[in-house]
Amino acid sequence: MTDHDLHLERIAAGDPRAFAAWVAAAEPRVRLSLSSFAARVDTEVVVQETLLRIWQVAPRFAPDGRPDGLIRLAVRIARNLAVTEVRRRRPELVDDAMLDEHAAAPVPPVDPPDGALRAAVERCLEALPTKPRQAIQARIAGAVERDRVLAENIGMKLNTFVQNVRRARLALTACLRKHGFPLGVVR
């Protein structure tokens, strides 16, 4: 298994390509580490904030000699951010022992994307009806745009766009499962 700290020196020097390669590996693990916070915190916010903080702190990060030190740091930052957010919102519901348990939960490994998954996704996308395919492709390509803008760009009303994204997502995940790629969360 690759030690993703191999990118550290270049990340610390401010190389965005090295950071992109690290983000591709780190993001799924950071996200899954927040699984137990899913009902209480908007985990997308925590994941993005965590990755940005790693970019800022990487020049000061000292590896401990074990693999994936920067990913382990990211998981710690993400869980701390999530705990802080839970405490801020509903302090009366927070039990410290419960939060410690969430914060210490193990992080499952994540298989990196491979050519077989890519080929299956492309096949499943091709099989979608036109409107859902247009909608999900617009959503995938428009990472930093709000849905209203994406919908306008392809001539759909917001509700129609969102309904088409849902149809596409459900059809895609079912198709990928049939091709041997169950992408769901194991709870």
Partner: peptide, 25 residues
């Protein structure tokens, strides 16, 4: 979202999901 991000990353030449691309932007 977990499933969607894997799909997005599989299609991206850098292996980045929409979250990764938002952060890079």
């Amino acid at each position: 979202t977990v499933a969607l991000r894997r799909i997005e990353a599989a299609l991206d030449p850098w292996g980045l999901s929409s979250t990764g691309r938002a952060v890079m932007a």
